[in-house]
């Protein structure tokens, strides 16, 4: 075991897969010589060569579109969008081809690829550097959407994503890229896509979250505990396909539900989780399920971001409101 942060764990996963499978290529803006603006691919070009890890010209649409071509012809591209807020030019390729090629060709062509992107905010960044648009991808049939919250999960999930025959959008919470360190096995291991994880068992309320919001919710739980509120914490880990069973079983047990995420609230992941609870655990509910998403605004620039991104206090405020209902 070796202590790794998220950046190191992701780097390690890509490194192992590059060694393991000659069909894997890694490219994107600045990923080669520099190792990416967050250094996630640092050292990989040196180790695996410029043929397999390289800087592409600057064009997100072209990066994803060419990956479709590689995917149908036997390669397994792992491409990077420098920031999730830069993916928009590639949305056409993602929605019209990445997500549809398998169905369109009736399974004749698979497009195995991973589109990695740092996402999320509260990092005092420029415009379009703080976006959380997992709901857009979750709403696009044909792709899987994975978001790890720990180095261990990041490695295991990314290896699964690379081996998956379907395209996977792999969103990396950049706020905690270097904030969390834990022991991660150096060898290859996998975590199944589509399975949530119960991080903490509790009896009063189910908190469903993912990505950087896991850590903030854990901090809110400490505050809740002081008020004798017992929170069951679920890390979704996969946005689509969503793990309904874990959500339903927990809500049946606690009777209360809070979903915490960063993206705009309306039409978001929170709404989806609430719908699952309403459909499958309605008679167990003791309070209205609650969404704590971002405002339906763009993420403000640094001076205003403290209003937008959830603090533990903000999450605790919602927890105690639900319990008091």
């Amino acid at each position: 075991m070796k202590v790794m942060n998220l950046v190191q764990a992701i780097n390690n996963a890509i490194d192992l897969k590059l060694t393991d499978d000659k069909n894997i290529v890694v490219y994107g803006e600045d990923v080669g010589v520099e190792g990416g603006v967050f250094r996630v691919t640092a050292g990989l070009q040196k180790k695996h060569g410029e043929q397999r890890v390289f800087d592409s010209p600057l064009a997100e649409s072209a990066i994803v579109g060419t990956a479709v071509g590689m995917g149908v012809s036997g390669l397994r591209p792992v491409v990077e969008m420098q920031f999730s807020g830069f993916v928009y030019p590639a949305m056409n390729q993602i929605v019209t081809h990445v997500a549809r090629m398998h169905n369109r060709s009736r399974g004749k062509y698979k497009v195995p690829m991973v589109i990695r992107m740092p996402y999320g905010g509260n990092i005092k960044a420029l415009e379009l550097h703080s976006e959380s648009m997992e709901a857009l991808f979750g709403h696009t049939p044909g792709i899987k959407v994975v978001i790890p919250s720990t180095p261990y999960d990041a490695k295991g999930l990314l290896i699964s994503a690379i081996e998956d025959d379907d395209p996977v959008i792999f969103m990396e919470p950049k706020k905690i890229y270097r904030a969390i360190k834990q022991e991660v096995p150096e060898e290859m291991f996998k975590i199944e896509i589509g399975k949530a994880r119960v991080l903490n068992e509790g009896t009063d309320l189910t908190a469903v979250t993912y990505g950087a919001m896991v850590r903030e919710t854990q901090r809110a739980m400490v505050m809740a505990k002081q008020q004798n509120i017992s929170v069951e914490l679920i890390d979704l880990r996969t946005i689509y396909p969503i793990d309904k069973d874990t959500i339903i079983n927990s809500v049946k047990k606690t009777g209360r539900l809070l979903i915490v995420n960063e993206g705009p609230t309306s039409f978001g992941v929170g709404a989806e989780v609430m719908a699952i609870a309403n459909e499958e655990a309605f008679l167990h509910l003791e309070a209205p399920p609650t969404r704590l998403g971002g405002f339906d605004t763009v993420p403000p620039l640094p001076q205003g971001e403290h209003f937008y991104f959830h603090s533990p206090e903000r999450i605790f405020y919602e927890i105690q409101k639900i319990v008091k209902f």
Binding site: E29, V33, E34, V37, P57, L58
Partner: peptide
Amino acid sequence: AISVPVSKQT
């Protein structure tokens, strides 16, 4: 373009 020289751009 950040780290990528023009020779790799065109």
